Structure formats: structure tokens, C-alpha cells
Simulated scan of single mutants.
Amino acid sequence: MRFSTKSRSLTGIAAAVVVLSVGAAGCGDIVEEAKSGVKKAARTRSVFSLDTGDCYNPSSGKTEGEEVSVEIVPCDEAHEGQVVGGFKIEGETAYPGDDGAAAIAEKRCPAESLTYVSDTWAVPEGVSLFYYYPTAASWATGDRSVSCTYAKESGTFSGSLKNESLNADQLAYLKGANNLYEILWANQPEDSDVEKDFDGYKKQAGEVATALDAHITSLKAIDQPETAKLRGELEKAAEAWADAAAAKDTDSFYVAYDVAFTGIDPNKTVAARTELKLATTVPADDAEVWAG
């Protein structure tokens, strides 16, 4: 999703006011339509002024493409998206291009969103992470903002995605688990062939092993049987990731990696999540990865 630099048109407001004056002459249906139009216009906000927590409907009706404005709605009403984080692009003297700006947003938004949505498993089915980022034209006017949002490409959802009232055990689990999978995907080698990027795969394995060690340490503070059982399984996985990172050849790497990757299958965390009263439905994307 991209920003557009065009100013928000007042056509919607003007049209609503005109229709309202016509309806005042006695057409009830037109009056109601006009009221609806005025209400929507009053809720319209520029994409440059979105705040974390805002629930919205794109004015264009599309979740992807250039967007000028959105309709801000109460989160208990049906909506297509919610802003869950944001940041400003720094360190770039020139516009990085659409692909470059999108890459920056794609890299940072998953981590930014976790501050607001700690348990991504609780996100409704069909709702995915999107982002608004600057276009070349808006960059020229000083726009550096990226808004990270969860949105539904088809249909709507209701309610805020913010995870509230999480206890210490839940927060400890989620912090370690979120970091683990974020590290896994953030360090994904570009080449699917291990032989062509052996060092890249070993680097990923080392980063995941370190993240797993931190996750395991945090789980030790949770005195729950299923969580303790999961910790034991993750300790085995951590050893396998460390072996993969230290592999001298690709054959040794493959042997260790098979155990390592299987060891962090999200399906194996469901019992602990149930015990901790967290969401227990594995996200479709993750389920597909480990099913394959």
C-alpha cells in the first residue's frame, strides 16, 4: 500500500451538503443518504495523519494501491483495517524507490506491530499485515512516514486488535516466541539453494539458536507443566540449530536443519498456549510452511 501526495478532495463533503439541501424539500430517502454522506465525510482523514489504534476503511475501497484518505470508524464497527504501529524512514538522502520503500516497511512493520498486537495468533482469519509508505512525490514534500496496519483484503472485521490485560507469564512467552520467529524470517537467505548460500544459511541458524536460548531462558520463569514440556523440546531444537550453524559441510547442515526446523513447528506450542490461555489456532501462513 502506498501514500499519494494529492490533497484530500472535498467533493464528498460538498456533494453531501448539496444533496442534504435537496432532501430538505421533502425526500426522506435522500435526507438519510445525505446524513450518511456527511457522517462519512466527517470521519475522513488524510493518510498522512493516521495514529496507532485507528480503525479505518480505505476511501478507494481497496487495501492495496495509492491511497489519499481513509474513513476513521469506531473499532466496534465493521472496518477493513487498523493501524498497529508506525515509524519514519531515516538514513535515506534520496527516495529509495517504490521497491526500496516497500522493503523498508516490510522489514520493520512486523516488529513495530508487535508492540500493539502481542499475540499474532489472535488476529482474525484473513487479516494480514499491510503498510502505507511514501511515494516519490510525497517524499519530495518531506513525507517519511510508514503506517503499519492489519487489514482484510476481502470483507471486514470488528473489534480492536490490541492485546490488553496480558499477565506476566503470557507476556514472557509472547516476547520470546515473537522474537524467535521474527529472527527466523528476517534472516531468511535469498537463495533457496543451500549450496549457493551456505554461509547465509549458517548465519540464519546461528541467529535462531541465539533467539531460542533467550526464549528458553524466559520460559524457565513460567511454572506450568505444558510450558516446561515445551521448554524441553525447544532445548533440543536449540542444540540442532547450533549444530547447523557450526556445520562443516552441507550434508551435516541438512541433517541438523531437519531436526532444528521441525523442532520449532508452531503446532508443538498449542498445548502450552492453551495452558497460558493464549490463542491456539496456528496462523494459516505458518501452518502451510510447516505442513510442506
Results as ranks from 00 to 15, higher is better:
residue 249 D to E: 15
residue 22 V to L: 13
residue 25 A to F: 15
residue 61 G to A: 11
residue 292 G to P: 01
residue 38 V to C: 00
residue 117 V to M: 06
residue 141 T to Y: 15
residue 268 K to N: 12
residue 217 T to M: 14
residue 193 D to M: 12
residue 125 E to N: 13
residue 146 V to M: 01
residue 205 A to F: 05
residue 268 K to C: 03
residue 72 I to N: 06
residue 5 T to Y: 13
residue 48 F to W: 11
residue 181 Y to G: 03
residue 16 A to T: 14
residue 265 D to E: 01
residue 99 D to C: 07
residue 34 A to I: 01
residue 255 V to C: 08
residue 75 C to H: 04
residue 278 L to M: 07
residue 291 A to S: 14
residue 139 W to K: 07
residue 103 A to R: 09
residue 59 S to Y: 04
residue 79 H to Y: 00
residue 192 S to Q: 12
residue 286 D to C: 08
residue 141 T to H: 15
residue 150 Y to N: 06
residue 274 T to W: 00
residue 281 T to I: 14
residue 167 N to H: 12
residue 97 G to D: 04
residue 89 I to P: 03
residue 263 G to M: 04
residue 12 G to H: 06
residue 179 N to A: 11
residue 41 A to M: 03
residue 224 Q to L: 12
residue 135 T to C: 08
residue 239 E to P: 09
residue 291 A to P: 07
residue 183 I to H: 02
residue 207 E to G: 02
residue 217 T to D: 15
residue 258 D to L: 10
residue 59 S to F: 04
residue 208 V to A: 04
residue 287 A to V: 07
residue 33 E to Y: 10
residue 262 T to N: 13
residue 258 D to I: 08
residue 188 Q to W: 14
residue 288 E to T: 08
residue 271 A to V: 09
residue 279 A to V: 10
residue 92 E to S: 03
residue 166 L to V: 11
residue 129 L to Q: 10
residue 15 A to Y: 07
residue 230 L to C: 04
residue 89 I to H: 00
residue 121 W to Q: 05
residue 12 G to N: 06
residue 228 A to C: 04
residue 223 D to V: 10
residue 252 S to Q: 12
residue 180 L to T: 01
residue 142 G to T: 10
residue 87 F to T: 07
residue 24 A to V: 13
residue 65 G to W: 13
residue 171 L to I: 14
residue 53 G to W: 02
residue 170 Q to R: 07
residue 249 D to L: 11
residue 146 V to L: 05
residue 105 A to T: 00
residue 203 K to M: 08
residue 123 V to N: 02
residue 51 D to M: 14
residue 56 Y to F: 14
residue 37 G to I: 10
residue 89 I to N: 01
residue 230 L to F: 00
residue 49 S to F: 15
residue 228 A to I: 06
residue 273 R to E: 09
residue 218 S to N: 09
residue 151 A to Q: 04
residue 5 T to N: 12
residue 1 M to I: 11
residue 172 A to S: 15
residue 197 D to R: 06
residue 100 G to Y: 00
residue 86 G to A: 04
residue 213 D to V: 15
residue 158 S to W: 01
residue 204 Q to M: 11
residue 137 A to S: 05
residue 104 I to W: 07
residue 27 C to N: 13
residue 256 A to I: 04
residue 141 T to P: 11
residue 80 E to V: 13
residue 89 I to K: 02
residue 201 Y to I: 08
residue 218 S to C: 09
residue 108 R to W: 10
residue 84 V to T: 11
residue 227 T to G: 00
residue 132 Y to N: 11
residue 147 S to C: 02
residue 57 N to I: 12
residue 24 A to G: 12
residue 147 S to K: 05
residue 25 A to H: 15
residue 126 G to N: 11
residue 197 D to H: 08
residue 217 T to V: 15
residue 77 E to V: 08
residue 5 T to I: 12
residue 290 W to T: 02
residue 159 G to R: 09
residue 289 V to K: 00
residue 123 V to A: 05
residue 50 L to N: 01
residue 173 Y to Q: 03
residue 152 K to V: 05
residue 98 D to I: 07
residue 244 A to E: 08
